[in-house]
Design a protein around this nucleic acid. Sequence first.
DNA 1: GGGAATATTCCC
DNA 2: GGGAATATTCCC
Lengths: 79, 79
Amino acid sequence: MASRTPPFLTNTYDLVDDESTDRIVSWNQTGDAIVVWDTAEFSRDVLPKYFKHNNFSSFVRQLNTYLTECFTPFFKDVI
Amino acid sequence: MASRTPPFLTNTYDLVDDESTDRIVSWNQTGDAIVVWDTAEFSRDVLPKYFKHNNFSSFVRQLNTYLTECFTPFFKDVI
DNA sequence: GGGAATATTCCC
DNA sequence: GGGAATATTCCC
């Protein structure tokens, strides 16, 4: 029996996959990385919908916890 | 140097001490115990102002973590 | 980035 | 109630 996928990973998948916020955060062209287009909006508007905080650094901390070579996010702050 | 008081304890002190919510949660007459008069209102309205959740059981879990004989809360659900 | 402290959840 | 897993914060 595979153990349950951690909530952080399913939440992160969901928030990236949500097309209504692709302007703020989306997959890259090849679909193997996350692009955060606007970290300010991302932190303020998107994070609290999925997590109990609105801190970009807390999100990145969790990302680093679960990171493997299969999962390569990057950030492109357009400000 | 004393180490810093954990946020849970200062938050809990503050929420009990706030007189505007004494109808929901207050000190007892001798000031050495917490009385939660309405757990439903307490969970829904008071907890999220001080913590990142609205679950009574999570509050009690933390209370048990920090409990000593000097700190004796009790709950009086008036429903 | 990540170790460690604290918070929140989950489950016995 | 509390151990353990996960999340959030704090700090190096």
